[in-house]
Amino acid sequence: MKIKCRDCGYRFRPELYSGLCPRCGAYNRYQDDVGKALKDAEEKQNQWAADPISVGQTARTMKKPFPVLLAVLAFLAVLLPAVAAAAYQVWVGRFYETALDRDIVQVEASEGKLTFHGPYKHYPLSFTLQEAGPVDTKDLTLPEGMGLLAVRVKAYCENYEPEVSWQDPCLKYEIDGRICYREAVNYYSFPEGFFEEGFTNEDFLNSYFWGPGEEEGYLMFFYEKDAQNMELMWTLHRVQAPEYADFAIAQGYLPLEDILQKEKGAGQ
């Protein structure tokens, strides 16, 4: 850009003549690019000294930089628990749907043998009644009208299936028109010396037997002596991810009446 000489008024380009007028030789001050850059730097330094944060920000964020950051943080701090709580409710709701009122396959025994085999159990699992009868409770005091029942059962499974397990069976019976269920009593519930010498925990049926092969042992239950239609009832469970809960998939019933009558007849 041309400037006008302050002595003779001649117009010339100062950057070509280092500010000296080509007509009269007088020196004229002018601002070149280096000078402009130096001046900008000087201005910025002054600005930084006054407000260090705003230097280097874009025009958009320089207006409200920190309140925006605070608002974003506050929003996330509130939003995260809210989203987590909502997700938990949905998740638990889905769990209830799958855990409650499920279809459980009901299996009936045939000739003293109960077999679980189907889409829910690839390798057949069977329970066969060996013997059953009341146990002499000796000097133990039980509630009035109650007795102790022992059942010997043989379990057989072709192969092990890690995702399918079975619980200790329960004893189902009817009394006065109502149905009762009782869980099996384990060996360690009985006082020392109750069983004959040599009869140990090993003689009880091991509920951790899931195959392959066979396992035989006793199950013991408390029952009411006036009970009728006694049955052993097994429940098969399947562990289901991602809930990691054992869901019942099948239940089977093994009637005890026949074998109890037979034992009673043999006893007489």
């Binding site: 009122d101 499920r102 459980i104 133990l140 005091t141 039980l142 509630p143 109650m146 329960c170 189902k172 109502r178 149905i179 009762c180 269920y181 009782r182 869980e183 009593v185 519930s189 009985f190 006082p191 239950f221 408390f222 009832m233 429940t235 019942a248 239940q251």
Partner: peptide, 23 residues
Amino acid sequence: DLGYLGSVAYDSQMLPAGQTGTY
């Protein structure tokens, strides 16, 4: 005069999955 086993006899009631029963 019920010992521990008498208590067990009372408490061994249960209700299997999906079933209706009386306690």
